[in-house]
């Protein structure tokens, strides 16, 4: 499969998501209001705590972490589960399966366009606003490049999880339920609703090795230069964890999908 053909899918995705410009602006606007809410809430929390640093996180760290987690959430959000269940119901999935291209790869690359658009139009502006508000609290250097690398890995982990959940939906006929279970687990255990640094010791030992952390916590920790991610000895385990989960989830997802897709063919006739 030539790279050129894959990029054609990306380009189509970019054009498609630019159709919904209003939606992008609303998302950006919502991110900004959300930023205000997070700012006031955590400011009050830190003011009541009486100390500046809690579990190694300052007020600014926590705020940047949570706002960028939300921005990452918007950027990584895929509607694979919804799209797939809709195309199963309408039967469109047969057309996608007949395409001379691996279905999973096709899905991934056709989403890549919207990722590019979302990254440029919602993540970057949010990032700039955060920089202005915190007076440049984010270090600008190698960590930015590592952050982007880590985000790409996060994207692959997230996609693999989405695909596994979407495959489960082939069996259960329940989309809303499965999706909300997935979303809740991911948001809680990845640190998107409350930074993982605040979790109790015992819980952290488990959460640290789960794949969910690879989606939000690791990229943001690297960006904020926490947990010794400035040193190679601290950085490598984090990126390593992401790579390992990428592989495990990719392989598991492929096997599960290949097994299940035969099932649909049998049922659908």
């Amino acid at each position: 499969m030539s790279v050129k053909r894959l990029f054609a899918l990306t380009r189509a995705g970019i054009m498609e998501s630019l159709q919904f410009r209003l939606g992008i602006f609303v998302t950006l606007f919502a991110n900004l209001i959300y930023l205000v809410l997070v700012y006031f809430l955590w400011k009050a929390i830190y003011d009541s705590a009486g100390t500046d640093v809690v579990n190694g996180m300052t007020f600014t760290d926590t705020m940047i972490y949570l706002i960028l987690a939300t921005a990452l959430f918007n950027f990584l959000e895929m509607f694979v589960v919804w799209d797939m269940s809709r195309s199963i119901q309408s039967g469109k999935i047969i057309l996608d399966l007949l395409k001379p291209m691996n279905y999973r790869r096709y899905t991934f690359w056709s989403y890549s366009g919207s990722h590019v658009v979302q990254f440029l139009l919602t993540f970057i502006p949010t990032f700039i606003v955060v920089m202005i508000i915190t007076h440049g609290a984010i270090h600008m250097g190698l960590n930015l490049i590592l952050f982007i690398l880590s985000t790409v890995l996060a994207l692959i982990v997230n996609f693999s999880m989405e695909m596994i959940v979407a495959t489960i939906c082939l069996y259960t006929e329940s989309t809303w339920g499965i999706n909300i279970v997935k979303e809740t687990i991911v948001l809680l255990l990845s640190g998107a609703s409350i930074p993982l640094a605040f979790f109790p010791e015992a819980a952290r030992k488990v959460v640290d090795y789960l794949p969910f952390r690879a989606v939000y916590d690791i990229p943001l920790t690297i960006l904020l230069q926490k947990n010794g991610s400035t040193e190679l000895s601290g950085l490598l385990p984090m990126l390593g964890l992401q790579v390992i989960w990428c592989l495990i989830l990719y392989i598991a997802g492929t096997l599960f999908w290949n097994y299940s897709v035969r099932k649909i063919t049998v049922n659908g006739g």
Binding site: T172, S174, G177, I180, V181, T184
Partner: peptide, 15 residues
């Protein structure tokens, strides 16, 4: 749609 009903209820409890 019993399966959907049960999973949705579990989902709600989880949230």
């Amino acid at each position: 749609y019993r399966a959907d009903f049960i999973i949705s209820t579990i989902g709600m409890i989880m949230t």
